[in-house]
Write a protein that binds this DNA or RNA. Structure first.
Lengths: 225, 225
DNA sequence: GCAAAAGTGTTCGCAGTACACCCATGA
DNA sequence: TCATGGGTGTACTGCGAACACTTTTGC
């Protein structure tokens, strides 16, 4: 039985939530869109395999990544019996610079415009999005999608695009501040407004701990629909 | 590469949270405690494999069961490279009647007194317990561990043993009632008190939906530690 | 009548929500 | 001076938490 790893890679470009997909340049299913994946090597753990695959495609390491689910329907891959262990990753889209269009034709596509993917990859994407919504409602993981310095507006836009709904700016900011998780910087971002918006950073001393604790910046009643 | 499924089976006997473990009557690791598991068959999905294994051991089907995690460290099984997809199940311990002591010497052991298990099974148990705590804090899944008719006291004891801490009975009951998820029956349970405690049932019309929604009977601040 | 568990009620404080205005600045 | 996005403030409401007493009944 074959064991593969597939990666659902999320990115955010200051406006829309995107996925990094590849147009396969090789058989089977050449020229079809798919997630980036690969087989688990004999001396490699699942996490390592996922990191390796992510690095192959993005050149990035040390990125937030988490196991999502194992897909094992006997008919999911028409060729051979394959189990796929799916991971999802959150990357700062600005960091992604790699050109790999020879091996993989990779592109960032908006989550709302995902084409038909091979095998059960659409189902994986859907589950990853649900998990992201679920997890981000309770833990501050969305910061992983932003650069080290970000504005409140960027963060708000990010939350709104993850949940596909508008949030009250004032309440959002208040919750953020009361969490004491972000630190205001001296510099301002001047591109998108005349007044300029302060940059913020994560408080690194608190952040790793808060990842495991319950912090919600959303209206609690709407956490899940 | 081999693909196995292992099952962490939770039960509750009106006092303590327990796991169903087997003492292996076969090699390798004969006479050591382990989770119940087996290899995924060629024409079988992962969920089906898990259900099959659960039924082999308990005789039960249609039980709450959910994929937990895929374990794939290359050294986790000393014999062969094996990926294990772990499921956890919640069963009404009263339903379990099967005698299988010939093939498997199975026993319900308190979660607090789990012996050393083979391979990485202790790690699986630990993760399953964490997941149970996490999930049950947000969704009413613990009902799956109780018989169809139960008393408030049983439910409270169950929550207390899952979280290892005491809960305020009055607030607990109020939250339960406001959830409108349970229906009081006419009969009382007379065994453990003189006054007698009413039986309750789940409102089946609402229950399947609420499984997906956010309902907490715990003090919200303490949801995760 | 007393022990033992069942079951009910109240007060308080804070967190969440809804909602509207002032600020700074470049053009 | 005005348009644009940035950032702050308030009042209300309801839920969650803390806490104690009454009820029932078998012995």
């Amino acid at each position: 039985m074959l064991v593969a790893v597939d990666c659902v890679i999320f990115g955010f470009d200051s406006d829309t939530l995107k996925l990094l997909l590849i147009k396969r340049g090789f058989e089977p299913q050449k020229n079809k869109w798919s997630l980036m994946g690969g087989f688990v090597q004999p001396n490699e753990g699942l996490d390592s395999a996922a990191s390796r695959i992510l690095e192959q495609l993005t050149g990035l390491s040390g990125v937030f990544m988490e196991q999502l689910f194992a897909f094992g329907d006997p008919r999911r891959d028409s060729m051979e019996r394959t189990i796929s262990v799916v991971y999802y990753a959150l990357v700062d889209i600005g960091q992604y610079k790699k050109q790999l269009s020879e091996d993989y034709h990779a592109e960032w596509l908006p989550l709302t415009e995902i084409p038909q993917l091979i095998f059960d990859h659409n189902q994986m994407v859907e589950m990853a999005h649900e998990r992201l919504q679920y997890k981000a409602a309770l833990h501050p993981i969305l910061f992983e999608l932003l650069p080290a310095r970000f504005t409140i507006r960027q963060l708000l836009d990010l939350y709104e695009s993850v949940y596909g709904k508008e949030l009250d700016k004032r309440n959002f900011i208040r919750k953020l501040q009361s969490s004491k998780l972000i630190i205001r910087q001296k510099e301002k971002e001047k591109g998108s407004s005349k007044k300029g918006a302060f940059f913020f950073k994560i408080d690194k001393r608190k952040y790793p701990f808060s990842l495991k604790s319950f912090i919600s910046f959303l209206p609690t009643k709407e956490i899940f629909h």
